[in-house]
Design a protein around this nucleic acid. Structure first.
Length: 576
RNA sequence: CGGGGCGUAGCGUAGUGGCUAGCGCGCCUGCUUUGGGAGCAGGAGAUCGGGAGUUCGAAUCUCCCCGCCCCGACCA
């Protein structure tokens, strides 16, 4: 039983000034967490109970698919991360430190390396596989901008697991097991969530899906189809593109004088005046960005997209990963890039790389820059007048764009990434030499999957989805207590509340009892609503009729129950 | 990295050169009150983010630093 008279809990009447999003505001106000430093939070007793309850659900479901729990240090020497290249690849997001002897360490952002090395160290036979390992552990990422309280912190609690298999079929089985376990976990946590296709990254190239909790405060945007069940992170969306055409069937390319047309709008107007009625979406906009490769090398990249769209930098970056995308403004050092008049034709003769968004298809004709100031070209045809190096999704995605699978309009929503499952393949096994001996006594390179759930973030995501203007309203499976008992009055009410609380605790329920002396009814009610325990029992003036009230936090419904039936009624409700 | 806003008690805030830095919440003591953030009385709690400067006098003006919050990062 949790007694509010002694519980380390102080609720705030007013919103903290630095909190913007609902989960941050309410978790602080209701006394679940306190900020220690940017992106770093302490958890008070009620918050800790929630971490434990969410962790317990995760553990049960991970154990149920045969995964084994281990625990690695958060403080890790540099060498394994050096071996996989992530010491540099992770960039500034890695917390690095040195010991007194000057040796380099990091605080683990994820633990692929150590899991791989553990399997390598302990196992050496195909008979040992498959194996799935997981841990629930504090992770560290030096976020450029920690924000939104618990949603994006620099320290957070995460379940990460890894599967080790002999072949692709085995990996697929491990992946599917995790996917099913995640479905059970998020369902049990009472969350609204979507499974969306994610970007697999440049090198892995295998399957990856994210579990997103729809919420207006989410940082990820995703599309879902209004007709079929396709859903994808915006970064990973495949749109239905136009049919390729025969490049030779187009009218010849023509270069026109188009002075003072630095933007798409001005270009469309000037072309119309010249008799070429090209809509904005028929122009080809060529955006220059700067790629920073993991080895630090910088390289300009030109991306062609339809002129009515903007470049979605996050989407582009996800599709050129592990390179980073930076703004490009060094036109002086690249005279071949004529600012405002860049065209793809002839660009391939310079050493500058050119790619297009998949919306730009073979045989399509475009109005675009002519690579000289004040001039544009029309009927510039892909496959005849220029040849991009690759198609890289980079254009922003719009609501109503056609689904890549069925062509129906897509809708766009925002969500919080609460889980990610990923077929890693052999990247880490290659880097760290993870082999087992096969039945033929020859070494077999192991293939891996990695799977994450943000435990602390899940609590914030649930708060985003489960609150109202009065406070939090937790699902039963994660609430810090099963029932909140309040006694109102100066007669028999409080002793009666105490007895009911004892009886409920005796039935195995976790009871939060408001036994604070001298709290007014208003305070007790406001706090109960703020804290968000799903069921509460009010022992008040109806006690003289031998009844108490049982209330539901979510529906605000209330019913009177005879004193001698309270325990049974509440137990039924909680277990129901 | 760029732009904007901000830093005064545990929380929310007032105070633009002049008396002992004010108020609300919370906290402590006493009395009253007990179905929707109670009332009265008395109290504790602040190096005004830090440093330097200007001034007879600085929370207030100047400079530097630190920190926080929000937005942005490409327009070809």
């Amino acid at each position: 039983m949790l007694r509010m008279s002694t519980l380390l809990l102080r609720t705030l009447r007013e919103d903290p000034a630095d909190a913007e999003v609902p989960s941050h505001r309410l978790l602080v106000r209701a006394g679940y967490v306190r900020r220690v430093a940017p992106g770093i939070y302490s958890w008070l007793p009620l918050g800790v109970r929630m971490l434990q309850r969410v962790s317990a659900v995760v553990r049960e479901e991970m154990d149920a698919i045969g995964a084994q729990e281990v625990l690695f240090p958060a403080l890790i020497p540099r060498e394994p991360y050096e071996a996989t290249g992530r010491w540099t690849e992770y960039g500034d997001n890695l917390f690095r430190l040195q010991d007194r002897r000057g040796n380099h360490y990091l605080l683990g952002p994820t633990h692929e390396e150590l899991f791989t090395l553990m399997v390598k160290g302990e196992y050496s036979s195909y008979k040992d596989l498959p194996v799935m390992l997981y841990q629930i552990q504090t992770k560290y990422r030096d976020e450029a901008r920690a924000r939104a309280g618990i949603l994006r912190g620099r320290e957070f609690l995460m379940k990460d697991s890894y599967s080790f298999d002999l072949d692709d079929d085995g990996l697929q089985r491990s992946y599917d097991l995790h996917r099913e376990a995640y479905v059970r976990i998020f369902t049990r946590l009472g969350m609204d969530y979507r499974i969306v296709a994610a970007v697999s990254g440049a090198m892995g190239g295998s399957a990856s899906e994210e579990f997103l909790a729809p919420a207006p405060t989410g940082e990820d945007s995703f599309v879902s189809c209004t007709s079929c069940d396709y859903a994808a992170n915006t970064e990973a969306v495949q749109l239905r593109a136009a049919q390729p055409a025969d490049p030779a069937a187009r009218p010849p390319m023509q270069v026109l004088d188009t002075p003072d047309t630095p933007t798409i709008d001005t270009l469309v107007a000037v072309l119309a005046a010249l008799g070429h009625h090209v809509p904005a979406k028929g122009t080809l906009k060529n955006v220059v960005v700067l790629l920073r490769h993991p080895d630090g090398r910088l390289e300009p990249l030109v991306v062609g997209i339809p002129g009515d769209r903007e470049v979605d930098l996050k989407r582009l970056e996800a599709n050129v990963s592990p390179a980073q995308v930076l703004p490009f403004d060094d036109f002086e050092r690249h005279p071949e890039l004529v600012k405002g008049y860049i065209g793809p034709q002839g660009l391939d003769e310079s050493k500058i790389r050119y790619v297009v968004d998949p919306l730009v298809v073979r045989g399509s004709a475009w109005a675009t820059g002519a690579n000289e100031p004040g001039r544009h070209a029309v009927n510039v045809v892909l496959g005849r007048d220029f040849e991009p190096e690759a198609a890289v999704p980079a254009a922003e995605v719009w609501a109503g764009d056609p689904c890549g699978r069925c062509g129906a309009p897509l809708v766009i929503g925002r969500g919080i990434e609460i889980g990610h499952i990923f077929q890693l393949g052999r990247k880490y096994a290659d880097a760290l030499g993870l082999d087992v001996l096969g039945p033929d006594a020859k070494p077999v390179r192991v293939t891996m999957g990695s799977y994450g759930i943000g435990v602390s973030r899940a609590i914030a995501a649930i708060a985003e989805q489960s609150h109202d203007e009065r406070g939090l309203a937790w699902p039963r499976s994660v609430a810090p207590a099963d029932v909140h008992v309040v006694g109102i009055g100066k007669g028999e009410e409080k002793p009666a509340a105490e007895r009911i609380a004892e009886a409920l605790a005796g039935q195995g329920l976790t009871v939060l009892l408001d036994d604070r002396p001298k709290v007014s009814p208003g305070v007790a009610f406001k706090d109960a609503e703020l804290l968000g325990i799903p069921t509460w029992v009010v022992v008040g003036k109806s006690l003289q009729d031998g009844e108490v009230e049982v209330r539901d936090r979510r529906t605000s419904g209330s019913r009177r129950v005879p004193l001698d039936e309270v325990v049974r009624a509440v137990v039924a409700e909680v277990r129901g």
